[in-house]
Design a protein around this nucleic acid. Sequence first.
RNA 1: GGGCCCGUGGCGGAACUGGCAGACGCGGCGGACUUAAAAUCCGCUUCCCGGAAACGGGAGUGAGGGUUCAAGCCCCUCCGGGCCCA
Length: 966
Amino acid sequence: MSDSSTTSPEREPAGGSAPSGPAFRYSASLAGEIETRWQGWWEEKGVFVQPNPGDPAFVALRPKYYVLDMFPYPSGAGLHVGHPEGYTATDIVVRYKRMKGFNVLHPMGWDAFGLPAEQYAIATGVHPEVTTRDAINEFRRQLKRFGFSYDWSREFGTIDEGYYKWTQWIFLRLYNSWFDRAHDKARPIAELVGEFERGAREVRLNPDAAEYTGAGDLPDGTPAGPWSGLDEETRRAIIDSYRLAYVALQTVNWCPKLGTALANEEVIDGRSERGGFPVLRKPLRQWMLRITAYADRLLADLEGVDWPSSTKTQQAEWIGRGEGAEIDFPIVAADGAPTGESLRVFTTRPDTVFGATYMVVAPEHQLVEAAMDDRASGVDVERLGRYADGARNRTDVERQESKEKTGVFTGVRVQNPATGEQIPVWTSDYVLMGYGTGAIMAVPGQDQRDWDFAEAFDLPIVRTVQPPEGFEGKAYTGEGRAINSGFLDGLGVAEAKPKIIAWLTERKLGAPRVNYKLRDWLFSRQRYWGEPFPIVYDEHGRHHAVGDAALPVALPAMRDYQPVESEEPQPLLGKATGWLKTTAGEAGVSGLDPRTPVTRETNTMPGWAGSCWYYLRYCDAGNDDRFVGQEAERYWMGGGGVDLYIGGAEHAVLHLLYARFWHKVLYDLGHVSTPEPFQKLFHQGLITSYAYQREDKSLVPVDEVEARGESDFVEVATGRAVTQTVAKMSKSLKNVVNPDEVIAAYGADTFRLYEMYMGPLEASKPWNTKDTIGLYRFLQRAWRLCVDEQTGALKIAPQASEDVERALHKAVAKVGEDIERLSFNTAIAALIEFVNASTPAQASGGALPAALSEDQIDRLARVLAPFAPHMGEELWAKLGRTDGAGSIAHAAWPGFDEAMLASDTIEIPVQVLGKLRSKITAPADADTKTLEEMALADAKIREWLEGKTVRKVIVVPGRMVNIVAN
RNA sequence: GGGCCCGUGGCGGAACUGGCAGACGCGGCGGACUUAAAAUCCGCUUCCCGGAAACGGGAGUGAGGGUUCAAGCCCCUCCGGGCCCA
């Protein structure tokens, strides 16, 4: 430790920086000077570098606390005021926990692969790496200017080769694993093969891989005989059907003009949102991740995490577990004789099977194709074909949205197993291939979509659940007694379900079945700016894993990112010819002759890949040998994972679900120590902005509005009155706030305080720049309370006043409590109250006398430090406490004395019939009897009670007295 | 259409477990300092009635109803707004 005077950059009283006023008034320029000086010192001294277990400076005795921010996507626009909201909140918690004696992990990095950078590159020809690195540098500069206490030594971007090397490594773990139903966990593929070889497992295609289509001639689910008797191709097909990362044909939205597949949200009325080009539905070979294997665990483990209930609900609904039954409807020939084949459906309402008056299959269903081959049925084959083709080219969302029901009769008839009646099979695009079996039994009496369809095509409707009296709707989906349902009649829904399932199971017409809405994760993108797959193909088109030792498969530098306009999808990486073709030896593929020519996978991973495990990498960001060191992972992720994770609610489903899925796979394979990654999750609210609304509800840009009086606003151009409202910040409304400007005007400490003071962290709230002045004034008052504005020296009172001491204990208690429950607005209010209360009355223009003792200034600096760290550090330095690397950030959080919180006497409100009538001053510990006597003796109360009889007196000691009298 | 959340002064919000509604900040009004302005400081500021004032009385947390000695908080119905799903 060295002498403070030489190592602390505390400013010598030089003065002269402020344009007017005292040299050491807390002005924007003084704040800026203090802030940048300490930021430089923190960085130079490595104040926020947190050692890992095993490092010399690591203190093993301390408990750990891992606080994570959702890392930002660095866009060229820089930070907006929404970013620092969550980051300030976590920084307050982190600084508080550090002072409470925790080892704190608080890292930051960059979610840097993604579409915007690539599209910018297409438009400008500038390489995404260049624009992304620039954006990262700008983001980092801005974040440092806020004084956030990140351990920047752990920083990385998802685009760093040293990071995505391990993203690829994790992909290979998925590729080389399968899900063992019996043990409900992932295991290495080698163990599966071992079981096949030993005869310990029946050799056949993965029965859970219903979507699997690459199995050649092997019929689904048929045992293939002993492993030793199988040829190489068959073995491959079987193994591939088990992998957690597998290739399958998936229908995607293909835009030939843009040369890329589009997400459903990017397609509007069959055209691309960007450019308005036609979009086709096209089956493509895609990498898929078998997240469906984890559906049950992803659902069940939500129980154990401390997350907002709305987020848990959204995840549960996304997984969409539905209990019901699979039912087989026997297909009958034209003469009514059974053909031996049947149509299988999944339903969550098997109890309504007596009301199934027709069937509907998705246009992609194989039954439609079969029906078109069967000319004998007399159905209009041309029309059927046209309908199926048309439906294929619409997205699932469009198909479900359309109000008008369309459809065609397939000519096929089946028998309702419950009623024995023959019912027609239709095809319609409101039934999706992706859910259940791609076929439904239509029960118009109990399903509104079925009802609409039945009305449109004049199909019979039978109610099988008795609607309540006075029910005027069409389909009735609620609870009720079964009717028209044979042996089920009279039963409620809950009783009817198991009964019909048992009945169907017994007759081998169906079976109980759990179904999920969750689909496997489509993991391929035809883009450039993403992680390459560690996969190559041989000349037969068979995929092979790149060996771990050959990772990373680096993204090749390219000059040309223009998409290839084509009917056939051609991923951009196909243009990197030098990279594309290689040999098995160079690619590190084992099991092939090293000279074998191979072609690299040209798809890239989706934007979600990098964010699926970044929280693990922070634990040990510099590790070149493992994705995360075992000791570091156990320490930081111990006790249930990340201790506090703050980020936007827009990631409630996808990011959080995908990350949980990868985490569970890594857990099953023994690479991480907890089943869940994030113990406590919190969503910060959206920061909105004021906007102005015309009478017709259209919005007017902020700069076209003028204030007339307190709350009257007028559109300048028309002179018409507009009303103030709240809207998302947007360029078009010109109501975007740039944090740099606010910092320039008031300093980072004021910015931090204002954003935390706006309201509850979880609430969305409007930014109002003129409110920032209040927090600036607060800092000025706090500063003036402690520092002489003329000399910059501390003003130290020779002895502490009792009142100030009590107020300080109260503030310390309240601030600590409020930080623990993330209630920062009230914590700041408590700080303001303390400063106001302890500031002596000041004659105008006169200097403020010293009011706080040295020790009180010290404690004030420490409780202020998490919120306004620069001022905290400056005061601490003036006290001579900051020295060496001994920042206030590592000072102990001040304690408080419970006895100092309560005063000896308190005011107790006295009510008569619930209305406040008087107040009595009583000892704080006065008991019920004393308070009752005092209240009844009070002069005002006696007046109120005149002529009345006291019926009852309710006393809550320390709180209030209520007298019931009439 | 379904689910979740929210309606408190001119504005942002506080009231944590049913116990003094409006903490704290902005804005506004009045005053001090100043040649003046800004900045700063002091006081007042939910609304209505009475009062010169001190103060007293009444109403009041989107609307209506209920439970309770007591409701911003719990229950029911409705209205308005937001978010998510469809």
